[in-house]
Computed example of a mutant assay.
Amino acid sequence: MNSIVNKSLRRLYLLGKTVRWGMRPCPAGARETRLIAGAQRSGTNLVMDILERSWEADVYHESDPRAFQVYRMRPLPIIQELRKRSRAKCFILKALCESQDLPELMEQLAPAKAVWVLRNYNDVVNSMVISFPRTHEDLQRIAQDRKLGGWRTEGMSEQTYRLVSGLVKRHGDALTNASASALQWYFRNVLYFEKGFYQHPDIKLLRYEDLVTQPQRTVSGLFEFFGLPYHPWVHGMVFSSSLRKRPAPELLPEVAELCEKLWQRFQELEKPQSI
């Protein structure tokens, strides 16, 4: 019953925003794009839900058929038309399968800013093994033929491909779904450094752990970066109970070491590069 009530209230709220934009539309020249990127199961849905509570944000989740098809962003002309028709100050899109293309998307949808949502690999793996039980099969195919990777291998450097495919081939059937999920966490998040996103002035890192343990500071920083008015109500649904709900997954030592090194590299980023 609560789920039905919440869905009904959300629909009413979104309708209210649409009516408001119709009465007080944001001038086209003042409209800006905001992109939410990162790796799967990193908390991007929570970030989108928070942003959706802003009166100034027109939010397109990856389940929205207007902007996405099977979780992939529709062709850019369709997205540009949606942005053109929007009446809100901020046009906000999920860009998970397209995270490797952030600068190009930002240029085509300018003016634009983006955040990269990062979550510790242990929690991501615990979530992935439930939601994506065949990731190890996906990586076995990728190791045999990079072209079979689809969005997973788009933007992947040759160095990273050799590293990942070598690990997969070396361990063969011993590669569990947990270790495969950890490898995917690695090669999707290492893009942040390989693509130089950490040096881009309009791309910032948002740590999931900060979001759920310090929601006021983190969300106010996000809204300030995105140019949205902040109110504590927007993060009223945020709780820290999602952290370390289950024991750390059992990973191949090589995979665990790889992920831990990347995790530490993220921790060493200077504060101006993060929210």
Rank of each mutant, 00 (worst) to 15 (best):
E194V: 02
L183W: 11
P201H: 02
F193I: 07
L243A: 09
F239R: 15
W233G: 10
F225L: 12
Y198E: 10
L205F: 05
F226Y: 13
L211R: 01
E224D: 13
S241E: 14
Q184Y: 09
L206A: 02
Y230A: 08
F193C: 09
F197T: 07
L228D: 03
R188I: 15
G227M: 07
F226D: 10
P201G: 03
P201Q: 04
R188M: 15
H200L: 06
L211V: 02
S242I: 09
T213D: 03
K195P: 00
A182E: 01
Q184N: 08
L205H: 01
I203A: 09
R188P: 00
K204V: 12
T213H: 06
P201L: 02
Y198L: 07
S220L: 00
L243R: 08
Y230W: 12
F239I: 08
H231P: 00
G221H: 08
P232M: 05
Y208P: 01
D210W: 09
Y186H: 14
R188E: 15
V238C: 11
Q214T: 12
K195W: 02
F239K: 15
F239E: 13
Y230L: 06
G221S: 14
R207N: 00
R244W: 10
F197R: 05
P215V: 04
S240L: 02
H235T: 07
R244E: 15
L191P: 00
Q199M: 11
F225N: 09
K245M: 13
K245T: 15
R207C: 10
Y208C: 00
R244K: 15
M237E: 14
R207Q: 06
D202Y: 04
G196A: 07
L205N: 04
